[in-house]
Design a protein around this nucleic acid. Structure first.
Lengths: 125, 125
DNA sequence: CCTTTATATAAACTATATTTTATGCATTAA
DNA sequence: TTAATGCATAAAATATAGTTTATATAAAGG
């Protein structure tokens, strides 16, 4: 339900703001968001669910992947999302994006979205 | 702290949206807000504290009363508050304002801000 | 002074939200 | 068709937020 309360609730969590910021440059599959945030997958899925329920993101199924992207289909949501992108710490966001890039680079020939996080390092989340 | 997260958290509660809506027409003292919302005073004070902490309202002490009013001193907060006033149910807000008016009318000669709620009716909050 | 009033705040309690762990269901590759 | 991958979701555990009850403080009136 996209009431104003639901929307504000969706925006009142740091992880979810990080996700919105991550999606700034285009859509991402869940496993890439997981890598960027360095969090376990069910946690990320939970937050994606909250954002989707509030109408702030949309998903698109493609093969076994699900890609999420921003949904700023009305003026109110558009301006909220813009505020988030503007007013959110760039330092933290840069780390998320860097982590994702490093990961994408490390995937040599394989195109699968294998999340190496847990084997590469003892993720704290 | 007026981070964007603090602001969204402050906005993600129905009682607090009702308070903002109540303050639409000007400042009110705590006891009047208590009457309008038909809630107990510490509860209202708690929510006023959250809104104040987020920089969405300001207070002004006058005698033994403390008056609260909207604080839309920057563009971001201004547009958020406007959205709340616009997109919030008018029906519920009308009841709050009516309750306050009835109370103000019932105060004949006395100018004190005595909250008769609990003696007049068994408030459910 | 002593009382009453208006408000805040602390402590205990309750409710809601988030996180983790475990599992299930599609989809694709082998 | 079996195994592996990507994701969702349920259940249990934890953390955070909201509510109530009790009390403190400051201001104003007697």
């Amino acid at each position: 339900m996209e009431t104003i309360l639901t929307i504000f609730k969706a925006l009142s969590d740091e992880t979810r703001l990080r996700i919105l910021k991550l999606l700034e440059d285009g859509e991402l599959c869940v496993c890439n968001i997981v890598t960027a945030l360095d969090m376990i997958q069910p946690k990320v899925s939970f937050h994606l669910g909250v954002l989707k329920e509030a109408g702030l993101i949309k998903d698109r199924k493609h093969g076994r992947w699900i890609h999420y992207r921003l949904d700023d289909s009305d003026m109110f949501k558009r301006s909220l999302i813009l505020s988030v992108l503007e007013r959110t710490s760039n330092a933290a966001a840069a780390e998320d994006k860097k982590r994702l890039e490093m990961f994408l680079k490390s995937k040599n020939t394989k195109t699968d979205c294998i999340n190496l996080k847990n084997t590469l390092r003892g993720g704290n989340d």
